[in-house]
């Protein structure tokens, strides 16, 4: 698990004010939405805004890859790193 992944998990918990879930409880490869961690569209909206602020990444809702970027913590970390590298 990379340090960015750990950081993202803590960031998700803090941003969404999630109770009863710790960094260790989130698997880097599990689905963030629906039957994985169980986040939903309301969370996605909030998380998207917060990620733009903190990591200065542009999330284009029309981009077909958005779903893939948000699929798991690992994908999100890869996406942020690639945006930064660009």
């Amino acid at each position: 698990m990379t340090s960015l992944e750990t950081e993202l998990k803590a960031f998700i918990i803090e941003t969404l004010n999630l109770e009863d879930v710790q960094v260790d409880d989130i698997d880097s490869t599990e689905a963030l939405f629906v039957d994985g961690l169980g986040l939903d569209s309301i969370d996605a909206l909030e998380l998207g805004v917060a990620l733009q602020k903190k990591y200065d990444v542009r999330i284009d809702a029309k981009d077909e890859n958005v779903k893939t970027h948000f699929a798991s913590v690992r994908n999100l970390a890869t996406f942020i790193q690639s945006e930064k590298g660009a």
Partner: peptide, 15 residues
């Protein structure tokens, strides 16, 4: 599921 994911499951059903 644990408490958090349980809450999320019920929330999905309610949606």
């Amino acid at each position: 599921r644990g408490r958090f994911r349980m809450g999320r499951l019920l929330r999905r059903e309610l949606s």
